[in-house]
Design a protein around this nucleic acid. Structure first.
Lengths: 124, 124
DNA sequence: TTATTTGCAAATCATTTGCCCGAAG
DNA sequence: CTTCGGGCAAATGATTTGCAAATAA
């Protein structure tokens, strides 16, 4: 961690205390119990810093905004982390994982999404 | 499609003409070439309607906002489409797909993300 | 006709930024 | 000391919504 601070430490501890993959507002509420006057901006700032430093991850597919796909068939995606372009993959769809997860978790599984990330030939 | 309109048809055609997984603004620009006074609001409205009706998909992990994860180890996620909660899966990580994709696409692959979606026991 | 859809502008929502002050190294 | 982090409020950017007029069924 570049520079420690009470707020960074609290954010990290709060985030490690749960497996609920919370959003910034939930973290804000929790941190406020210890540091009542933290700013929401500080939460956002530090979540980003902690992520960039590798202390935490983001559970959802990057911070990308809505990207639409006219192809309704099941297929996986390949995303370039530099230019942001998304390509279709023609890997076979692995349905077996859905049944296994359904059996082990009690979920009624409706599908799955796989995204491979990296650098495209032009961006390398 | 519940009720057809020139704008819905144009949006669908534009989206099916590319595999670039564009965002709403790109679709807007394209549609404007045929219907110069479309509103961006119409684009958003119809993208949502078309998605709900199953005519198109969203390439990114739903429209979820930032969700953070204090667990930095590689792991997959299970998301409930109703309540939005995200759970960790302890499925084995399949690194083999990364090498295969790298070989076939020329990408420098840095990782992959797998998310299984469905309804959690409480939401079913 | 009658229910939907559109375009417009204003409203939201999550997230970011500018600025000045206080804290860390 | 001097740089970096924090709090606040204002700014931003994407997406949504309210509403009267236009359009599809």
């Amino acid at each position: 961690m570049i520079k420690r601070s009470k707020q960074k430490e609290t954010i990290l501890r709060v985030l490690r205390s749960t497996s609920s993959h919370p959003g910034a507002d939930w973290v804000y509420d929790q941190v406020r119990r210890e540091i009542p006057n933290v700013s929401l901006a500080t939460i956002y700032r530090n979540l980003r810093l902690l992520k960039e430093a590798g202390y935490i991850q983001q559970a959802d597919s990057s911070s990308e905004h809505g990207r639409f796909d006219g192809n309704t068939g099941a297929h996986y995606h390949l995303r370039c982390e530099k230019c942001g372009r998304i390509f279709d993959l023609n890997e076979p769809i692995r349905r077996s994982i859905e049944a296994r997860v359904a059996r082990r978790t009690g979920f009624k599984v409706t599908g799955h999404r796989l995204e491979v990330t990296g650098l495209c030939p032009e961006c390398q």
